[in-house]
Design a protein around this nucleic acid. Structure first.
Length: 547
RNA sequence: GAUCUCGUAGUUCAACGGAUAGAAUAUCGGUUUGCGGAACCGACGAUCCAAGUUCGAUUCUUGGCGGGAUCACCA
């Protein structure tokens, strides 16, 4: 009725709570087009809306250069708080992808190589995205893609044969076995560089592994692979992940090679004995898919992996997580894959994580220069126990991993994070333990009240403040995180909610002498704990019983 | 050199083109016997530079400066 058409205006949550619950810039966007003063236009819109004001809106204000601010009514918040109570652990769950199938691949290890801090970052981001996918209403399958075949592994197997398999079996613990296998990888690489004889032998071994030729090397390799895989399963379980299936690089390699070879002349071309994809024609760079020795490179293997993913799971969306260094690399693979089968490229989403850099010298000295995942976690566990000697093994682990995970997830995935355990990994303020503590504290008060015969009762006539208002925004934050596949929005939301909760706690005598007041306070405490727990769970952070 | 990415308080991170650029940490100063002080309250403190587009730019465009990544047979 005001003649407004087109244009880009927004309805948003104002950053300042004094500006109401929702705000729109619509008047400022269209003021020029209509030849009006933004504030006057805002007034006209306000008058128009007020003719049929829904009961969810308490009042409308015009502020600043022409913002229209909506303050929601208590009725709205009462309804929303009742939703939290009804939905419980499902509160905030979206239906964005209901009926769809989502495949997530993350934490892909390089067997025969150590599981290091980079894998922790990948796992943390991957697990959070997995949980977001599940909260989007989709049917989710989670897989990992272990690298189990390469020239590098051939080098490690060469050393294993040289030492004899007994050497590995004589290691007392799994940790020692892993350390030994890691050592083989390093020694193999060195031996390979130093002698042509070794090079020839390693190539032969690698060929046998690729072809699965029954041989001594295959036996040794299988034994090493099993130990590495067992360890992988253990450590990701400790981090809170479970995988439905694995697709091995050895499988993907074969499939990828066939696909690439059958598309030579169309998608790929031959050059210097290798099979390449000329990325320059689409503004990218050229990459080799099959090397001049006839082996598939990582590029061809990734094409094979995509093919297997769609063949086995037929997902509507296929998400995978890697280090951000692979961004440009994957653009090329995706472009080539898209020429073979457009669906693969359209439905594949690549998310990245950054690198963890260590600033403090203390960390590297304590960790001995090689930041293995387990060593990193153990170091943090020690700090937790130092802070609170009464922490049990399980809760100390949860707190340490929670601290690590939040340090990773509170930043936008893809950017590097600076990790200094002396300062950035604090247990106070914006931290994993702060979130955990907030929930534990809320549950503790609730339990104490139950023991006194009190239970939560909602008094819908109460005025609602910042805490209650923030609770009702959870669903919107979840949807934003799913749309962008960006877990850090959840992390920021959870930290702010925890802060509002602790602030409210400090100003409220929850178990008030007035029974009605106490019961209402308990209701708010309970819903807060619920929403906070839902958010923290989405991040893949566990909540200890006490801390 | 080409392409991509990033540059925000001392430090670690936020901010869909919006209002007085938010937090945390560090530093300084506080917290009325009240349920968990890993907490709460307060003070101090920042958009790399220069143009442009816009009613409005940390955000978009262009050009610098400074990190990081990728650029043919590693994964």
């Amino acid at each position: 009725s005001l003649g407004i058409e087109g244009g880009d205006f927004a309805l948003e949550f104002p950053t300042d709570s004094a500006h109401g619950d929702y705000a729109t810039n619509v008047a400022m966007v269209f003021a020029k087009q209509l030849g009006k003063n933004p504030k006057e236009l805002a007034e006209e819109i306000k008058t128009e809306i007020e003719k049929a004001l829904p009961q969810e809106i308490a009042h409308i204000d015009i502020a600043g250069p022409g913002f229209i601010n909506f303050t929601l009514s208590n009725t709205f918040f009462a309804t929303e708080l009742n939703h939290i109570k009804q939905k419980g652990e499902l509160y905030g769950k979206s239906s964005l992808h209901t009926g769809k199938k989502i495949l997530v691949e993350h934490s892909s290890p390089n067997l025969f190589k150590a599981f290091h801090i980079g894998h922790v970052m990948n796992n943390t981001v991957g697990e959070a995205i997995t949980r977001l996918a599940k909260f989007s209403g989709a049917e989710v399958t989670v897989i990992s893609y272990p690298s189990d075949i390469s020239l590098g592994i051939g080098k490690a197997v060469y050393i294993m044969l040289l030492d004899g398999i007994e050497k590995m079996h004589s290691c007392a613990t799994d940790t020692e076995k892993l350390a030994y296998l890691g050592e083989c990888y390093v020694r193999g690489t060195k031996a390979f560089e130093e002698s042509d004889e070794v090079k020839t032998r390693v190539r032969e071994i690698t060929k046998h592994l690729y072809d699965h030729t029954p041989s001594e090397e295959l036996t040794v390799y299988e034994a090493g692979k099993e130990i590495n895989l067992d360890y992988f399963k253990k450590i990701v379980e400790r981090l809170g992940s479970h995988f439905d299936a694995f697709i091995y690089e050895s499988e993907a390699g074969k499939v990828g090679q066939e696909i690439v070879e059958s598309n030579i002349g169309t998608v790929f071309s031959q050059s210097d004995g290798a099979v390449i994809y000329e990325g320059e024609k689409v503004g990218l760079h050229t990459r080799v898919f099959i090397n001049s020795e006839g082996y598939p490179t990582y590029e061809a293997k990734d094409v094979g992996l995509m093919s297997l993913k769609f063949e086995r799971y037929n997902p509507d969306l296929s998400i995978f997580i890697t280090d951000h260094e692979q961004t440009n690399y994957f653009e090329v693979v995706k472009s080539a894959a898209g020429e073979i089968n457009p669906v693969w490229a359209e439905k594949t989403v690549h998310r990245t994580h950054g690198r963890m850099s260590f600033k403090g010298q203390k960390m590297s000295s304590r960790l001995g220069g090689v930041p293995l995942a387990a060593t990193l976690i153990d170091t943090v566990v020690e700090e937790v126990k130092e802070k609170n000697p009464e922490s049990t093994g399980i809760s100390a682990d949860m707190i340490a991993i929670g601290a690590l995970k939040l340090a990773i997830l509170r930043a936008k995935a893809g950017s590097n994070i600076n990790f200094d355990p002396e300062t950035s990994l604090s247990f106070e303020g914006d931290s994993g333990p702060y979130l955990q503590y907030s929930i534990v504290r809320a549950k503790s008060v609730l339990n104490k009240a139950f023991a006194q015969g009190l239970s939560p009762v909602f008094d819908e006539t109460k005025e609602f403040g910042q805490l209650e208002r923030h609770l009702t925004r959870f669903s919107a934050v979840v949807e934003k995180s799913i749309t962008e596949w960006a877990p850090h929005h959840i992390a920021m939301y959870a930290l702010e909610l925890a802060h509002l909760w602790n602030s409210w706690y400090g100003n409220t005598h929850i178990i008030d002498s007035d029974k009605k007041v106490a019961e209402h306070n308990l209701f708010i405490a309970k819903q807060t704990a619920q929403v906070l727990e839902n958010a923290v769970r989405l991040l893949g952070i566990e909540i200890p019983q006490s801390m």
